[in-house]
Each structure stands twice: as C-alpha cells, then as structure tokens.
C-alpha cells in the first residue's frame, strides 16, 4: 500500500526535516504516527497525501512510484486518500453538508446518493441537526467532526488524520476513533498522527515514532505491556 525508501524532505535550502525514512504500510494497516511537536509528522503526512514531493528517495503508493505518476493521473490517486487536517480546512461559505459532500461531488456521484450518505454520516457524528450550518457557526469539536466526515465519506483506501481528536471531549474522541476503526475493518489503511499517547495506548495498533525527522521506532502495541481492560473500554466507546 505505502512504501518509503530512503525518503528525505527539505524546504528550500534549509536542513532536511525528514531523513532516510524507510518503512512500509501494508494494505489494511492501522498506525498511529507519534512524536514530539516539530518532529515532522505533518511533513510526513503531506508526503503521504501527495501535497509535497520528496527531495530524495522513493515513495510507492497504491503500487505506483509517486514521482513517476503523470500529473493528469494524480487526481484519481488523491481521490483514494482521505485527509483530516489539524486546522480542519473547511470551506467557510459552504454548509456542513456541502463540505462533507465535496469528495463525492469530485467523484461525480449522483445527488440522490450524496444526499443519503452525507445525511447519514453527519447524523452518525451527531451533527444531523447541523446539516445547513456554516463552519464559522460551529464549535471546534463540531468542525472537527465535519472534517472527519468529509475525509471518510468517499470511503478512501488510505485515511490520514492529523490530530483528529484534538478539539473534542473523550466521549466524542472515542466515537471518532471507532469510526476510523470501522473503516479499517472494511479495508482502509489508517494513519493517525497524534500527541495523545493516552489515546494511543487504548488501542492495540502499531506506532510510527518520528523524532528529529527520523523514524525511530515501529512497533505494535500488542508487543507492549498488555493493559487489560483498555481495549474493552475502547470497544464500549
């Protein structure tokens, strides 16, 4: 699904913010991307959602070398990726409904299908009575839920989330993470960048640990000390 080989990234003539990244995410994997602020998590996500090209190394996505993909084929590739941004990046003049509907409209879905699926999903994230609300009128948590709904509405094969639970309470955070888990069970590869180690510890999924622009550690929580009851608690969330 995703393979990085000796990937490096620098901005302009500055130092490398990512160095010699080599790792592989298999199809249907679920990873937390952790690390301190400034470690390069957002830069790594940008490489993954094709907003940037690496300054060196090879990235393979959906079995295609990214640098060799013709420009006209990039949109189709990007439509298979869902992204949740830390700052939401909603279109302020579009309603919650239209923001969430956008990926489906970009794919050319029928309006009847769009209406059905978007309404269902927004209801699921407890925004069913805010379909016509504009983002500036929503709270941070509500905006985050709209952003997540927009990222998952088109059932992406790869879902990338940058601090997706940073603005919501624990109950909503668990609910949203379970949405990611459900997508994962349906075959979506998920990468969630987060500072919230408490949240990470409640799920038994591998971590990608970034420190000073390098992947320091890739491990599954199953390999860590078992913490009985946490997974069950997550299951109830």
């Amino acid at each position: 699904m995703v393979r990085f080989e000796n990937v490096g990234l620098r901005y302009g003539l500055g130092p490398e913010v990512l160095r010699d990244l080599t790792f592989e995410l298999e199809s249907g994997a679920f990873h937390f991307l952790v690390g301190p602020s400034g470690a390069g998590k957002s830069s790594l996500l940008q490489l993954l959602y094709l907003a940037r090209r690496p300054t060196r190394g090879l990235i393979t996505l959906f079995d295609r070398a990214v640098l060799k993909v013709p420009r006209r084929e990039l949109p189709a590739l990007r439509q298979r990726i869902g992204v949740v941004f830390q700052d939401f990046r909603l279109f302020d003049h579009l309603s919650a409904f239209d923001n969430v509907a956008l990926p489906l409209r970009l794919k050319g879905a029928k309006e009847t299908e769009i209406r059905k699926h978007v309404s269902e999903l927004l209801t699921w994230v407890e925004l069913g009575d805010h379909l016509d609300a504009l983002p500036p009128t929503l709270s941070g948590g509500q905006k985050q839920r709209v952003a997540i709904a927009r990222a998952v509405i088109a059932r992406p094969r790869l879902l990338l989330a940058d601090e997706p639970t940073g603005n919501v309470d624990d109950r909503i955070a668990m609910r949203l993470l379970h949405l990611f888990v459900e997508l994962h069970k349906m075959g979506t590869t998920v990468v969630i960048a987060t500072h919230n180690l408490e949240l990470v510890s409640r799920f038994r999924y591998p971590e990608l640990r970034l420190e000073n622009g390098e992947i320091k550690q890739v491990r599954a929580s199953a390999q860590r000390d078992a913490r009985p009851g946490i997974e069950a608690a997550a299951g109830r969330g």
């Binding site: 907003a51 949109p75 298979r80 970009l106």
Partner: peptide
Amino acid sequence: KDGIALLHIMGARNRF
C-alpha cells in the same frame, strides 16, 4: 490558493 490547494489534495482536477 489555499482553497485550490485543498481541492487538489481532495483530488479535484484542474478543469473542475
């Protein structure tokens, strides 16, 4: 430019 960049990330084609 920010909105356009976002549309590109979401897979919008230039003609859209």
